[in-house]
Design a protein around this nucleic acid. Structure first.
Lengths: 226, 226
DNA sequence: GGCCAACCGGAGAGCTTCTTCCATTTCTCC
DNA sequence: GGAGAAATGGAAGAAGCTCTCCGGTTGGCC
């Protein structure tokens, strides 16, 4: 994301920093903060969201206390990291909406996000979780874009009419399960799952479906619940 | 590991106990063993395979040491519990093979197992894991029956020819992900996922698929890997 | 150059879970 | 009913993780 204006006007009286946390820090602190975020991003991608905080701190080359000082809760850190991931998804979404072929845009978006999940084990959480303090990146926006993408494909007659927005979450969760369980075969397995699902999503499959699950893309992050 | 062989028959000539462990125990020990298995089954179903051993012991009304004496490793306990689950699956499989309509047998089996996963969070592990000491219940048998079920449906022209046995594992893993992430909506979400997938599995969908992942139903249980 | 608030890292308390050890109790056989 | 092997439960050690406290360090401003 790197939204944060790098140079803060030295005399600016008004405290800007809409993200909320990065400015006003001493230079060494700001540097460490970036290092922590980078390390967290890598660690989440590699090991999933359950990676111990000590691991992230070590990876960043800072003490655990520094990490805690900068991000008082686990959720605060995740919010920051996943904000960047969400931005990436939003970018993909915009790209998909610009595809002249609505179905192709939809299909390639689902495939793309599926592939991103394979690379980054934290992405699913990013998409399915709602971090109250993830300022700046609002889920609502993603959801709205997604709804447009879906509607566009339906209007073109290529996406089945009974497709539900929650089915996107279904894909993400299903793919997450496959990736988690398939070990080294994860990329191939994930591609195949997505291909299967996309075939079912096409409009020419008349068979009726069970009622959609009321899955929300947006889901409260509950650290205790696993 | 200090396995002080607890039951050494004084002179017993024929060692029966094909399951491997239950006979030759004192009556109270055998009773406790059953209690532990029952508690473990319930705990796994309710909380998944990560449930602490102390929880199982408490639930069984025995001390933790008793659990350890009977099942030296976590895997040993799981092997025993999941052996029962596998037996249940095998029964379903037989039932499906007896369905006069091959596709209907296939479909109902997949739906049934999907529903069982919703009820029992340990079942996926049971099906995807291979416990070296799960004597008595052999995965090979299940796999063979499954292969017959698949082939039968293919021969009837209802299941797509490029369906791969590993796609069954794909369904299980995907469903597992959905169940784990969907919270209270798990049953509905799972049903919908399975319905989507089953539609794609039907033979009249000509679109080619990515190459199948070499997923094996049988998978070495690796406690360290999550 | 020197001050001092901001910042740092590591030690350690507190918690959960796994695993082993051992004094005590219980069952079985005679 | 008594001897002794088998079995028991709980304490305790080990390990991993989260989070806090505190003495020492450093960047930024005069």
């Amino acid at each position: 994301m790197s939204v944060r204006s790098p140079q803060n006007p030295p005399d600016g009286p008004a405290r800007l920093d809409p993200g909320g946390t990065a400015n006003g820090l001493r230079s060494d602190a700001r540097e460490n903060r970036e290092r922590i975020l980078r390390a967290a991003r890598e660690a989440y991608a590699a090991q999933g969201i359950d990676v111990p905080l000590t691991t992230i701190a070590r990876r960043a080359g800072v003490g655990i206390a520094t990490l805690y000082r900068r991000f008082p809760t686990r959720a605060a850190l995740m919010a920051e990291v996943f904000g960047e991931q969400l931005a990436q998804c939003t970018a993909e979404l915009h790209k998909a909406l610009q595809d002249p072929d609505p179905w192709n845009g939809f299909r390639s978006f689902v495939e793309k996000v599926g592939a991103m999940q394979t690379t980054d084990r934290g992405l699913t959480s990013a998409l399915l979780s709602h971090f109250p303090d993830a300022a700046g990146h609002d889920h609502g926006h993603i959801e709205e874009l997604l709804a447009r993408l879906v509607q566009r494909a339906k209007d073109a007659g290529k996406l089945r009419a009974d497709f539900h927005l929650g089915d996107i979450a279904l894909v993400l969760l299903a793919n997450c399960g496959v990736i988690g369980g398939a070990g080294d075969d994860a990329p191939a397995a994930s591609r195949r799952l997505v291909a299967y699902l996309l075939q079912s999503f096409q409009a020419d499959h008349g068979t009726p479906l069970p009622r959609p699950a009321p899955l929300e893309l947006r889901r409260v992050y509950a650290p205790s619940a696993s």
